[in-house]
Simulated scan of single mutants.
Amino acid sequence: MTEQDKFVALVSATAEVSLPLGEFQPKSALVTPDNTPLMPRFPVIDYHNHLDSMQPEDVLRIMDSCGVEHVINITMKVGDEAIAILDRYHAASPRFSSIGWMDWSDVQRDDFVQVTADRLKRLVDHGVVGIKFWKDMGLTIRGNNGNLLRIDDERWIPIFEECEKLQLPVMFHTADPTAFFDPIDRFNERYEELAAHPDWGFSDSPVSKRELLEQRNRVIARHPGITFVGAHCAESSEDLAYLCEQMDALPNLMVDISARASELGRQPFRAREFFLKYADRILFGSDLLPETEMYRLYYRMLETADEYFPYPSHASRQGRWNIYGLSLPDDVLRKVYRENALKLLPKLS
């Protein structure tokens, strides 16, 4: 047998080997420096987290271990259950603040706007520093006629006017990652994540992601007296050019980077430019249950020039790639880590 025959036989034998995608867990052969910070260069305010299932004392221990000064808990509960969580965290430590969750129950009521105003006042009485409108607004909530309720429906104007009156910043989590609106097939870069959670997909949605974001943007433009926070880079981290367009058009829009290290860190040159240009309007947030190593991965992305390392994520991860450090300058880090959040937290200033 010639050497060429041996090579062909080897290739043929190898080609017959099959490996389920889920079992393919390659380890990178790259040897690169690891400059992971054990503590951030400056104190950190985590503006976006969900702590409802945790005990305050457990969170405080983790905060101390990795330089987190303050955490904003965005409760995902409404009504009396939400109030109990707000009170528990506020009583536990002044290092916690809370953002309330928009309650869409009874949305078909004729007096829903007044009901919502009363709910907002109750949340404020219990110390919230903002209100969050989630992706159900525009994607799943329907009116009496069965149609999806639009984000920019003029019926909600008095609700936002009440937010302005109460001086409540408004957080929007509108739509989701772009891959969630694509078919869950072999071309979807987040196939494994969506195959494990098919209910996260919106490929059959009657409204596109771009239309949802444009509806949201019309609300932001309509209420210039409110500071809006676009959660997860305003759901535009895969298209930083479009995100920049929105930031330029909407001066009352800030964004947090929660759960988007995976997107920002894989485009480090463009992402660094974005941070430098909008340093006054970007908030640090994690959107992952507090863990010391999770926070340190965020610090590694923001502070170092390290190459090709894992991004902070939940267990199912978001895609088969690694990220790079942005090596942000100190003046930008100070703003992103803490100073920008203080603008929305006057009692801490």
Rank of each mutant, 00 (worst) to 15 (best):
D256C: 00
R334F: 04
P177D: 07
P329C: 09
I226R: 04
E273M: 15
Y308V: 01
L86R: 11
V129D: 03
A279T: 11
H232R: 09
L194E: 00
L148E: 02
S97P: 00
A175Y: 00
L194H: 03
A84F: 03
R272I: 02
A82T: 01
S316W: 11
W321L: 11
K121Q: 13
M171R: 11
N35D: 10
M39E: 13
E81S: 03
A234I: 06
R334S: 08
R190M: 10
I99T: 14
D182T: 13
L288Y: 14
P43H: 15
L10H: 10
R320F: 12
R88D: 02
M63V: 05
L149T: 01
D5R: 07
R190N: 07
G130K: 04
A315L: 14
L333T: 08
V115W: 01
P43A: 11
E273R: 14
K27T: 13
R109Y: 13
N145L: 00
G143F: 03
F202Y: 15
I257D: 02
P346M: 08
E273A: 14
P198I: 07
D111T: 10
P224D: 13
R190Q: 12
E245K: 13
F172T: 03
D280Q: 14
H197E: 04
K121T: 11
L333V: 09
E211S: 06
E162S: 15
L328D: 03
V107A: 08
L289D: 14
E164P: 12
D5E: 14
M171E: 08
K165Y: 13
Q25R: 15
R88K: 09
R41L: 14
I159G: 12
